[in-house]
């Protein structure tokens, strides 16, 4: 990628911008981006509405963001409250916060720390790990991940509700409600977990 000619985009306060190609994108206040964003670093600390796709080497969302498209990058970190209407593709995907992805989360490493409610249609990758930070607490029972299918080589889940989980090594931890687990080599289930059906392939 040619980085030299690229400018930075910084939205502080209330502002809007068109999409385009940038080096750094930072949204601190309330920002709207009308169009696809392509940049090296994309960071949202405020409230952002992005009407398009986001493609960046690193994406970090610490505020609230809604992306009406797909997100792709090498590293994607969702630490605030994020809604993505499309897919989310990355080499590493970290989430610690509330988020919703209407499409597929596809990453080599998927690690999700549940701090709020999380909803994803599908998750696919090599290592998938979902854990809850504080097992107890006032709103603890709302901290849950809901997904239709989760597929990976190594899958470790806690407090997850899913229709199908497929993998080579699958660990279903406490708080899980899984309809069907299909595993190849290894399957462990915590006593507090509910798995309706498990099958070795």
């Amino acid at each position: 990628m040619e980085h030299k000619a690229r400018h930075d985009l910084s939205l502080s306060g209330v502002g809007s911008a068109s999409g385009g190609t940038y080096h750094d994108v930072r949204i601190n206040g309330v920002g709207k981006v009308h169009g696809d964003l392509e940049c090296v670093h994309c960071r949202v600390d405020g409230v952002a509405d992005i009407y398009g796709n986001v493609k960046a080497t690193t994406v970090q969302i610490r505020g609230r963001a809604r992306v009406q498209g797909s997100v792709s990058g090498d590293e994607v970190r969702l630490e605030g409250d994020t809604t993505i209407d499309g897919n989310c593709e990355a080499e590493t995907f970290h989430a610690a916060g509330a988020f919703r992805v209407d499409g597929l989360v596809n990453a080599d490493q998927v690690s999700i720390r549940l701090h709020g409610s999380a909803k994803v249609k599908e998750i696919g990758g090599e290592h998938i790990r979902v854990v809850k930070h504080h097992k107890f607490g006032l709103f603890s029972r709302f901290k849950k991940l809901t997904a239709e299918t989760i597929e990976g080589d190594d899958v470790h889940l806690e407090f997850t509700k899913a229709d199908v989980v497929r993998g080579n090594r699958v660990t279903i931890g406490p708080g899980c409600e899984i309809e069907c687990v299909e595993y190849r080599t290894d399957f462990q289930q915590a006593p507090e977990a509910r798995v309706t059906e498990s099958r070795k392939l």
Partner: peptide, 15 residues
Amino acid sequence: ELTGISYGQLYRWKR
């Protein structure tokens, strides 16, 4: 099963 590839590889190639 048939090709001996893993979920990780398949998803990576898709990506």
